[in-house]
Computed example of a mutant assay.
Amino acid sequence: MDKWKEIKERLAHLHGSVELLADGHKLSLIKVHDGKKIFVRVYVDGCVDFAWTKTEDGKPVHAQGQFWRPMKRAAYPKKHYAALKRGWGKKEADRMITPRVIAVVPDFGTEGAVVAHLKKHFPDLDIKADEVAS
Rank of each mutant, 00 (worst) to 15 (best):
M1S: 13
D2C: 07
K3H: 05
W4N: 06
K5Y: 06
R10H: 12
L14G: 05
S17M: 13
V18H: 10
V18P: 11
L20C: 11
L21M: 11
L21Q: 12
A22M: 06
D23T: 07
G24T: 12
H25A: 13
H25Q: 06
H25G: 07
L27C: 11
I30C: 08
K31N: 11
D34Q: 11
G35R: 05
G35H: 07
F39Y: 15
D49L: 09
A51S: 14
W52K: 02
G58V: 06
K59F: 08
P60L: 05
V61Y: 06
H62C: 11
G65C: 08
F67I: 01
W68C: 01
P70V: 04
R73P: 04
P77C: 09
H80I: 01
H80K: 12
Y81N: 05
Y81A: 03
A83H: 09
G87S: 10
K91E: 15
K91M: 02
D94G: 06
T98A: 14
T98E: 15
R100T: 15
V101E: 04
V104W: 01
V104K: 00
G109H: 07
T110L: 08
E111R: 09
A113F: 01
V114M: 02
V114I: 09
A116W: 02
F122P: 03
D124I: 01
L125M: 11
I127G: 13
I127R: 03
K128P: 04
A129P: 05
